[in-house]
Amino acid sequence: MRWLLGTLMCLWAGAVVAQPARLQAVPGLGQDSVTVSGLSSGAFFAHQLHVAFSRVIEGAGLVAGGPYGCAEPPDEPWWLAIHPYGRTLTALSVCTRVARDTVEAWAGWWGELPEVPTVERAITVTDVTRAGAGIDDPANLADDRVWLFHGTRDTVVPPATGAVLAEYYRRAGVTGDRLAVVSTVSAGHGFPVDDFRGESRFRKLTCAEQAPPFVVDCDRDAAGELLRHLLPDGFAGMPAEPRRERLIGFDQREFFDAGTKSASLADIGYVYVPAACDSADAGCRLHVALHGCSQNVEAVDDDFVWDAGYNRWAEANRIVVLYPQTTGWTPAWDALGWGGNPQGCWDWWGYSGEAYAERGGVQMQAVRTMIARLRAE
Score class of each variant (00 low, 15 high):
V300R: 13
T184K: 00
D136F: 04
A299C: 12
D278Q: 14
G353A: 13
L49T: 08
G61R: 05
L62P: 03
V17H: 04
A282D: 04
E112S: 15
E358W: 08
W78P: 06
A43R: 13
I319V: 14
Q210N: 03
D177G: 00
A180E: 06
D143S: 07
S262P: 02
S33N: 15
V119P: 06
C10Y: 10
P74Y: 06
V119H: 04
D219A: 09
F149P: 01
G86R: 06
S186Y: 00
M1A: 07
Q31A: 15
A133T: 04
V215I: 08
G111W: 11
E199D: 08
W78L: 13
T327Y: 05
I371E: 03
D302A: 11
L39P: 10
A131H: 10
A223N: 00
E199K: 03
G173R: 00
A142M: 03
R97V: 14
F45G: 13
D221A: 01
T260S: 09
A357S: 12
S33P: 02
A222V: 04
L39M: 15
A314Y: 08
E115P: 01
A91C: 15
A172P: 00
V271T: 08
S41A: 15
W306L: 13
F256W: 04
N311T: 13
G249M: 10
T102W: 14
L205F: 02
V320R: 05
S41D: 11
A64L: 12
F250W: 08
V321N: 05
G269F: 01
L62K: 04
Y68N: 05
L4D: 07
Q325P: 02
Q31W: 10
L322M: 09
L92W: 13
W349T: 09
W106K: 11
A122H: 01
Q210F: 00
A71I: 11
A211T: 02
W109T: 14
T35H: 11
